[in-house]
Design a protein around this nucleic acid. Structure first.
Length: 709
RNA sequence: GAUGCUGUAGUUCAGUGGGUAGAACGUAAUACUCAUAAUAUUAAGGUCAAUGGUUCGAAUCCAUUCAGUAUCACCA
């Protein structure tokens, strides 16, 4: 295809650095770490030189705020989660070459050098001074989201510094009436501060060429057709919207110090320092392993691939590449195969509601579940959100564990091992036939699997894995050696059949390794072989091109199940484990139904109530308000007159359905403009725990304009 | 609100330089018994979100609409 590919000798793979302020869940695992691990393990199997770097992202205001709330030093927070996450990752079989952390000195130096290089070059940064809100109690400048106040446009009392959720208008914190810090609850003061901005806008032109055509500095860099649609789409949409300078410093005492004398008390903004963590991690690894990090970052012979979730696309496809290009000398990623998000039983993961399962939690709860890590890795790969959001369901986990891993793969391997022991005393039979020819269909599947991984189609690849054992099952069924054995136990057909089946088991042992490494080791040990080594797939392909991958008369091991089925007549323990997880969710759902009745408000007086003039009325016209999701413009007949009312009910009621609807209208409410339309009253609605709105109305044809008391 | 992505069999998803729709699971029938009541074969099942357009021909291209989801300049 092109020459550049042939130059590639090394691969550098990154998985997005997890933020070290909390435990991680299945979504992080399947979106980011698992695909990277599969890819990296595959490259190693192919005998490629590859380094996979990752680590904890440990800076940023979120961590300092959490530390203050818990009365801890930020270091204590990040230590806790760094080591916890690292331990979980090891148990899950993630094969990082290094799991780094951005609080290490080598990272601080690297990030500072990077900043300093851009600064000294000139033209990449600009300085701006302005006034920002500052929380004196917390001794911290406040991000927009940490400020609340009254909205200047709709007077909603709980507007955020960046946006009012009531009227939807974009705000600046300075516009808020009576601003309050959400950290201390006190009124913040205005303070002047200076920050450095990275001139991202300068990079728009080459970025577009790079993303659209895959060309960099007039040369071929990568094939944009191999990028996922949603990745390219989002990037180009960003470029279309125009790029703007972005602040890259913060007023904080936790983070990488800005290496300038005039920048005391300022640190690099985490999104600037975090991706540089990939570089410092590589340096750290290289130092430990006697390698040169530049061979991976600054060499044409190395390919860079970033794995991440869709929330991180623009950072890795626009901002970080711009930083690297501005610095000069660095490789840019040849692909950024971002995944979408994983939901859990139909909803988003939510730590606060207990919806979902954390990685540590899974590892602990399923500790005694045989091969529980591979069971999870398999289920998550099968449902990987490669091109759209996907959903983890326990029932599907059970299904694919039992039907695919146990019945298809596990049972195939088992029946081959059992038959080999039975017919040949556990020795791999030698045959005279054309083994290579017999294995051709298997080789085709293997090739497809290989290509799928190279194309980052892991879901399809793992299906090919299953196809391999399906082929094995079908093949056994077609030949049915047990039938032949009854009449002619010495038949060469039996030998040939079993040799082919054993070869397939051997192939499965090698090629399953990127996906389900523990199972791979177990298959190998059933064949009496060592765990597969780097280059194992390359070696296997060489052997297959000559004939088979196994040696004649190899003494294999005794049968042992790879996966214990969840639906097991004799042992209900695994099913109980799953049922307990499902019961937990039911409990949450029921609790939500039960609670969430608003407490009764403070006492009021009859006189106050009488101030309300509530009238019966009928909706005679209804239309959607433009530029508003929730609003309908209604004309209500209240007998003596008609009123125009803007009502936030569009999510639950279509305009055409509610014409003729009888309603109750609060008629003496002060008029207010909503989205430019004067609303002369308020329709009374009942709202349930889901936020659904229902009309409250008199019985049919009651008549308009009567008072409600 | 703008923009990106997504919307295909009961379920989970593949699929496009436009030319009689694919898999897995589930369902039904049959075969087999070496194996974890496993396996194999066959069958049924889809106006490819809706509407309009381009075309000899559209699930595939264009437009509009609807739904889900993400991003939208200091949120890590």
């Amino acid at each position: 295809m092109n020459d550049t590919k042939n130059k590639i000798k090394r691969y550098l793979v990154t998985a997005a650095l997890p933020y070290a302020n909390g435990p991680l869940h299945l979504g992080h695992f399947t979106g980011n770490f698992l695909p990277a691990d599969i890819y990296v393990r595959f490259l190693r199997l192919e005998g490629k030189e590859v380094v996979w770097v990752c680590g904890s992202d440990e800076h940023g205001a979120a961590i300092t705020i959490q530390a203050k709330k818990e009365g801890l030093h930020p270091k204590e927070i990040v230590d806790k989660y760094h080591f916890a996450n690292k331990a979980s990752f090891e148990q899950l079989g993630l094969s990082f070459d290094i799991y780094h952390r951005t609080s290490l000195p080598i990272h601080h130096e690297t990030a500072q050098d990077f900043f300093k290089t851009l600064y000294d070059k000139g033209g990449q940064f600009e300085e701006k001074t302005n006034e920002q809100y500052y929380d004196e109690a917390f001794d911290q400048f406040l991000a927009d989201r940490y400020i609340k106040g009254e909205c200047p446009k709709c007077n909603h009392p709980e507007a955020y510094g960046d946006q009012c959720e009531n009227c939807g208008s974009d705000l600046s914190p300075l516009e808020l009436i009576n601003p309050v810090s959400t950290l201390s609850g006190k009124k913040p003061i205005l303070k002047e501060t200076t920050h450095w901005y990275f001139k991202l806008d300068k990079h728009a032109d080459w970025l577009r060429v790079w993303l659209e055509k895959g060309e960099l500095d007039g040369q071929f860099h990568h094939d944009p057709k191999k990028w996922k649609k949603h990745v390219l789409g989002q990037c180009l949409s960003w470029l279309d919207g125009g790029l703007f300078p972005r602040a890259i410093t913060r007023d904080l005492d936790w983070g990488v110090k800005v290496p300038l004398p005039q920048a005391d008390g300022k640190v690099l903004y985490v999104w600037f320092d975090a991706p540089i963590g990939y570089i410092s991690a590589t340096k750290d690894w290289a130092k430990e392993n006697g390698k040169d990090w530049k061979d991976f970052w600054q060499s044409e012979e190395c390919e860079l691939v970033h794995f991440l979730g869709k929330d991180n696309i623009v950072f890795h496809c626009i901002i970080f590449p711009s930083m690297l290009k501005a610095h000069g000398g660095y490789n840019l990623p040849v692909n950024v195969p971002a995944n979408q998000f994983l939901n859990f039983e139909g909803r988003k993961f939510s730590k606060s509601k207990g919806w979902g399962i954390g990685l540590t939690e899974y590892l602990e709860t399923f500790e005694n579940f045989p091969n529980h890590v591979d069971a999870l890795r398999y289920a998550l790969t099968r449902g990987m959100p490669e091109n759209k959001d996907s959903d983890f369901k326990w029932d599907e986990f059970v299904d694919c564990h039992d039907k695919e891993l146990a019945d298809n793969l596990g049972n195939f391997v088992n029946r081959v091992i059992v038959l080999t022991n039975k017919y040949f005393g556990g020795k791999v039979p030698s045959i005279d036939g054309d083994l290579k020819g017999l294995l051709q269909p298997v080789q085709n599947l293997l090739n497809k699997l290989t290509q799928d991984i190279k194309d980052f189609k892991f879901k399809s690849a793992i299906l090919q894995l299953m196809e391999l054992s399906t082929y094995g099952n079908t093949y056994l069924q077609d030949v049915s050696p047990w039938k032949i054995y009854k009449t002619d136990p010495e038949s060469p057909v039996i030998k040939e059949c079993m040799r082919v089946a054993l070869e397939i088991v051997n192939i499965l042992g090698v090629v399953s390794q990127p996906f389900i490494p523990f199972t791979s080791n177990k298959i190998r040990s059933l064949l009496n072989l060592e765990p597969v080594q780097n280059g194992g797939l390359q070696k296997l392909n060489e052997q297959l091109s000559k004939g088979g991958g196994l040696t004649d008369n190899l003494q294999i091991g005794t049968p042992d199940l790879l996966f214990a089925k969840i639906h097991d007549r004799k042992d209900s323990s695994r099913l109980e484990l799953i049922e307990a997880q499902k019961a937990k969710l039911t409990t949450i759902l029921e609790a939500e139904k039960a609670e969430e009745r608003m407490p009764v408000k403070a006492q009021t007086s009859f006189d106050d109530f009488c101030k309300m003039d509530i009238r019966t009325g009928t909706i005679i016209e209804a239309e959607k308000v433009k530029k508003a999701d929730k609003l309908l413009k209604l004309i209500v007949d209240i007998g003596l007159e008609t009123r125009t009312v803007v009502s936030g009910i569009a999510k639950f009621h279509k305009p055409e359905d509610i014409i003729g609807q009888e309603v109750l209208l609060l008629a003496n409410l002060a008029p207010r403009k909503l989205r430019g339309i004067e609303s002369q009253g308020m329709i009374l609605m009942a709202e349930n725990e889901k936020g659904e709105l229902a009309f409250v109305s008199p019985p049919k044809a009651f008549g308009n304009g009567f008072e409600v008391r």
